[in-house]
């Protein structure tokens, strides 16, 4: 849950920092710019470690704690890096009643991680998500932007094997 200073790897590049500074300069004067800046920052870095939030704080004058408070409020902001392939299993009602819980449990077991984590090799990260609006295909999971529907537990190994 928490990710204290220095405990999360950070290898930000000069280019990423420049891109972030450019975004901040563009958006800073807009009303309520913090969330759009954080979203763009996450697009650039993939997550929002302390180094990134500190840049945002320094450039906008918004206290770091406030940014962290926002980052930890919304489910989509990540304090930890995500895997090369991001798996999310829909636990929305329709999927749930059609057994997506079993799919999720199987994935946790298979990958040896719990939801919200990333495998040690950085390959997969796993999350549960709310309805992705594909209820007709329940149960559904997404790997990156690919949607897999009408799943059974037996399909999972085959799907994972497609990703390198």
């Amino acid at each position: 849950m928490c990710s204290k200073k220095g405990s999360v790897p950070f290898n930000g590049t000069k280019e990423q920092e420049e891109a972030l500074l450019k975004v901040i300069a563009e958006l800073k004067s807009e009303k309520g710019a913090l969330m759009p800046i954080m979203q763009k920052a996450q697009d650039i870095y993939g997550y929002l470690p302390i180094e990134v939030q500190t840049i945002i704080s320094n450039e906008t004058g918004i206290p770091l704690e406030k940014i962290y408070g926002v980052a930890t409020f919304y489910a989509q902001f990540n304090l930890n890096p995500k895997g090369r392939h991001r798996i999310s299993v829909c636990l929305g009602t329709a999927c749930y009643v059609k057994g997506s819980g079993d799919i999720y449990n199987y994935l946790m077991e298979k990958l040896g991680i719990v939801g919200g984590e990333c495998t040690p090799d950085g390959k997969f990260s796993l999350d549960a998500c709310r309805c992705v609006g594909a209820c007709g295909l329940a149960p559904v999971m997404m790997v990156n932007d690919d949607v897999y529907g009408r799943l059974t537990v037996d399909d999972i190994d085959g799907i994972l094997a497609k990703y390198e």
Binding site: M35, Q39, A75, Q76
Partner: peptide, 19 residues
């Protein structure tokens, strides 16, 4: 939005737009 169901509530939505 950034993944918070409560932001469907009108005042929360506005608070969120405000950053």
């Amino acid at each position: 939005g950034a993944g918070a169901f409560v932001c469907g509530e009108e005042t929360a939505l506005m608070t969120s737009i405000e950053g």
